[in-house]
Simulated scan of single mutants.
Amino acid sequence: MPRSGAEARRRLQQAALELYQERGFDQTTTAEIAARAGVNERTFFRHFPDKREVLFDGEADLRAALTQAVAEAPDGLQPLEVLLCAFRKAGRILEENRPFSEPRLAIIAVTPALRERDLAKAASLTEAVAEALRQRGVADRLAGLAAHTGWAAFHHAAQAWIDDPSQSLDAHLLQAFDDLRTLSATALPAQAQPES
């Protein structure tokens, strides 16, 4: 039996991850997760409101890390550079949890209910990042666009890191933001430019 709440929570997360990989998300019950973790189902619900949340437990930590990093970024940086600083700091959370992060992303990718939850969580995180940028004085429209663009680059880098672990998440993140700069510096072909 787990001796502490933190240990029970960790065991529940690990049990859920194993069962989702073995059987699939839809075929796994909270009772089975609890049994695998060596606790009762009531303990499961003390830690998680439902079986989806087991995979999204770090959202509050990620949100706090991102918003704090945005607030603490050096003055004088453009919004995307502020976000690069923030995502580099927050990326350490993923790197420290790679044994959980990698299978978690694979399970989410093949489970519609989890993809929906992931999109909702991403929207919430993106709005928190946009608000942190607004607090730095970035105009509302630009803060929203930067937050969405930065989150897309972060997500792209995280997937690249899962696919190619020979480089750190940080290296993939730097590459994703370099790619953003390249995209924004590319001139539109004459036929694609707006008419004046």
Score class of each variant (00 low, 15 high):
P49L: 09
R98W: 09
A143E: 09
E59N: 07
T29D: 05
D26A: 14
A90T: 07
V39W: 00
S184V: 05
Q159K: 11
A31V: 12
A123G: 13
I33G: 08
R98G: 03
D140H: 14
R141Y: 13
P99R: 05
A130C: 05
E96L: 10
G144V: 10
L77R: 10
T28L: 04
H156D: 13
R92Y: 09
P99F: 01
V129K: 13
G150L: 13
A128F: 01
R115G: 03
E22P: 02
D26C: 03
A86V: 05
A6H: 10
A73H: 06
D140W: 12
R134Y: 08
L169D: 01
P79A: 04
A8F: 00
F177R: 11
R134M: 15
A176E: 02
G137D: 13
A37I: 04
A15C: 01
G5D: 05
A143D: 07
L62P: 00
Q27F: 00
D163E: 10
W151T: 15
D26R: 14
Q135S: 10
A153G: 08
A69M: 01
Q13H: 00
P103Y: 02
K121S: 06
E95C: 04
A122M: 11
I108F: 05
A160M: 15
D57H: 11
T43R: 06
S101V: 12
H47E: 06
T149L: 13
L133T: 03
L173K: 07
L80M: 13
F25I: 02
R36N: 12
V110W: 00
L142R: 11
A130S: 09
V110G: 02
G38P: 04
L119K: 08
A109M: 13
L142G: 04
T149N: 06
G76K: 03
S124I: 00
L55Y: 09
D140R: 14
K121E: 09
D61T: 09
A34T: 07
A15D: 01
R104K: 14
L183F: 08
A139T: 04
A8K: 05
W161P: 08
E195I: 15
A152S: 15
A6M: 01
N40E: 00
Q175S: 10
P194Y: 13
E59W: 08
A143F: 04
L169P: 01
E116I: 11
A69E: 05
F25Y: 15
E18L: 03
A146V: 11
S196P: 07
A143W: 11
A86H: 06
A120G: 04
R136F: 15
Q14H: 08
M1K: 07
I93Q: 07
A192V: 05
R46L: 14
L66N: 02
Q175N: 06
L55R: 04
G5C: 00
A35H: 12
A109F: 11
A139G: 08
P194G: 15
G5F: 04
L62D: 07
R3L: 14
Q191I: 14
D179G: 02
A143M: 04
V70R: 05
R36G: 06
L105I: 10
A152P: 10
